[in-house]
Design a binder for these strands. Structure first.
Lengths: 156, 156
DNA sequence: ATTCCAACGTTGGTGTCGCCAACGATATCA
DNA sequence: TGATATCGTTGGCGACACCAACGTTGGAAT
């Protein structure tokens, strides 16, 4: 045998990385993204699509610029996402009559249905990703993360 | 004025997203990545470089495959990172005599120095990213994240 | 010993994502 | 009126994760 030492390399990830919350977050974010995609990809969706749909529904009739700022998605990417969503017949873009630079967005009936389906799938993904945590712990984690993100947004 | 309503859109990020830990994690991961990069980019580094350096130091003389598994970095990407690190004179790649498929990796003296510098910068970045949390809360967050990631790795 | 299979490192390509520069159209301010 | 700013849009770039294929080599089966 070429390796008589005990156990090859059972744990190979350096402690120096496990100690950094930022490293942990990055790793988990990658995994979370993968899980959510797997749930959602069958409808040819990408991560931002869900965010945009949810934002439009919750904000009522926002402009593209409002979404760009609120979702921290770049304007150019927003155009692509909306092109796609409009192509599926889930979102309507119409010019604002009082300010003809702006596009006012709204969900179609089909868009609302799609959002509800996606919502359930994204929800299911949470259970997979955070299966290691008790409900109370998960809520605790969510609260800590929310505070970190709020602080980050505040500093712009 | 075209918008007499109170305050345009002070908070525009939908609650539906703030409720999902996976969304929060993704947002924070993006921000964290940006902060770390800002600290580190002046040396033309990328995120994976630090991870690879740290892993080599901590594991002693690992093979590329061990790093690929431990760091969850794809083999092809690993090649590129090591090419770069070797080009800087921070890492040595030599063929394993007992198994000539393998490359054994080691840090050079300059590599150790560079790692120490990076280590300090990454550490400083943590303070920026998680400034909203007390030390105890930060540790609590770290512990929760570690458990989630351990569970994820266990399921492979 | 030969054959088959698995692992290793490497190359090349793909898709998502975040970001930036520039532009025409439009609105606002001086 | 003219200068300035905003909005949506186009095009491109770099980082990152991932996948398919290949030549080389080691280990195991026959």
């Amino acid at each position: 045998m070429h390796d008589p030492s005990p156990g090859e390399h059972p744990l190979v990830t350096p402690q120096r990385l496990w100690r950094r919350p930022s490293w942990l977050i990055n790793q988990i974010a990658g995994h979370a993204h993968r899980v959510v995609m797997q749930q959602v990809a069958e409808s040819g969706m990408r991560k931002q699509h869900f965010a945009v749909l949810a934002a439009i529904e919750e904000l009522g009739a926002p402009t593209q610029a409002a979404l760009v700022r609120g979702l921290a998605i770049d304007g150019s990417d927003m155009v692509a996402v909306l092109d796609d969503l409009e192509g599926r017949g889930w979102v309507e873009r119409r010019r604002d009559d009082t300010d003809r630079r702006r596009n006012v967005l709204s969900l179609t009936r089909a868009g609302e249905v799609a959002l509800a389906e996606l919502d359930a799938k994204v929800d299911a993904a949470q259970d997979v990703i955070f299966a290691a945590l008790e409900p109370a712990e998960r809520e605790q984690l969510r609260e800590l993360l929310a505070r970190v993100l709020e602080d980050q947004r505040r500093r712009v």
